[in-house]
Simulated assay, not measured.
Amino acid sequence: MRPTLYATIGPAGAGKTTWRHQHAPPGATVISLDERRSALSPCGCSADPSVNAAAVADGTADTRAVLAAGGTVVWDVTNYLPRFRAHLLDLAAEFDAATVGLVVLPPLLTVLARNGGRDGRICAVCGMARRVPDPVVWAMHAAITDALPGLHREGWHTLHFLSLPPYLHRRHHGRTP
């Protein structure tokens, strides 16, 4: 069987982790940078930026090992910038792995409401909170929205649009309202 890399593409609060818990392929190795940062951070915070590079390196090493063995990996991260997605596509190419992009992009107000329900307390050690600041969520949502028309040119073998606002779904598929 061909190795496969799945990657979620969605802002904080979009429902990527919920999708992963409900639909990740059986036996897949999950790479969640939130979980890895939490494990590596001295304070246990999933948003601790001081351990982000180590979390990415750790996830990358695990991905290489799983893909080399012919397995399946699911990256549960935002992937809102092209360079993040390119990193994963490059990893997959090293092992001729199939790539599946999973776009999770509910309406911005839905994402903001979900993110607003996260813990907003600031950690005294790392200075971060689980809740992502609204302007950052807006920027993530905008970056992914802007990328939608060109995602198919990035090199994904398959793209699934799991949750799109109706106006983006129509635009993406070339239909008029």
Rank of each mutant, 00 (worst) to 15 (best):
A68Y: 14
P82F: 04
L81K: 14
D48Q: 00
S46H: 12
A53W: 11
A47D: 01
P42M: 05
D58I: 02
S50Y: 03
R85Q: 03
P42C: 11
T78R: 01
V77H: 13
V77T: 15
W75G: 00
P82Q: 02
G59A: 06
D58H: 10
V66F: 04
G59Q: 01
R64V: 00
A57C: 06
A61T: 13
V66R: 09
N52F: 13
A86H: 15
V56D: 05
T63I: 06
A47G: 04
V56F: 13
T63Q: 06
A55V: 06
N52A: 12
L67Q: 12
N79M: 08
W75E: 00
G70A: 04
V51I: 06
L81Y: 14
P82W: 01
C45Y: 04
T78F: 01
S46V: 05
V66M: 08
T60Q: 07
D48S: 00
A47P: 00
G59P: 07
V73F: 03
A55D: 02
V66H: 08
A53V: 10
F84H: 15
V56E: 12
G70T: 12
A86F: 14
A86Y: 15
T78S: 13
S41F: 05
Y80V: 01
D62K: 10
N79G: 11
D76K: 00
V56S: 08
A69Q: 15
V73M: 02
D62A: 13
A65W: 06
D76C: 00
R83A: 09
V56R: 09
A86C: 04
S46K: 06
A54F: 15
V74P: 07
R85Y: 06
P42F: 09
A47T: 01
V73G: 05
A86D: 15
G44S: 10
T78A: 11
G44T: 05
D48Y: 03
T78H: 03
F84I: 10
D76A: 03
A57S: 13
D58K: 02
L81P: 08
Y80D: 04
D76E: 07
D62M: 15
N52V: 12
P82L: 00
A61H: 12
S46D: 08
G44H: 08
V66I: 06
P82S: 00
G59T: 14
R83G: 08
R85N: 07
D76T: 03
F84L: 13
N79A: 11
A47F: 00
P42L: 09
T63N: 02
V73E: 03
G70L: 02
G44Q: 05
A61Y: 11
A54R: 15
A65T: 15
A61P: 07
R85V: 11
T72W: 08
G70P: 05
A68G: 11
A61M: 10
A61F: 06
W75R: 01
T63G: 12
R64Q: 13
A69W: 15
A86E: 13
G70W: 10
T60L: 10
T72A: 04
V51T: 12
P82V: 01
A54M: 13
T60W: 11
V66Y: 04
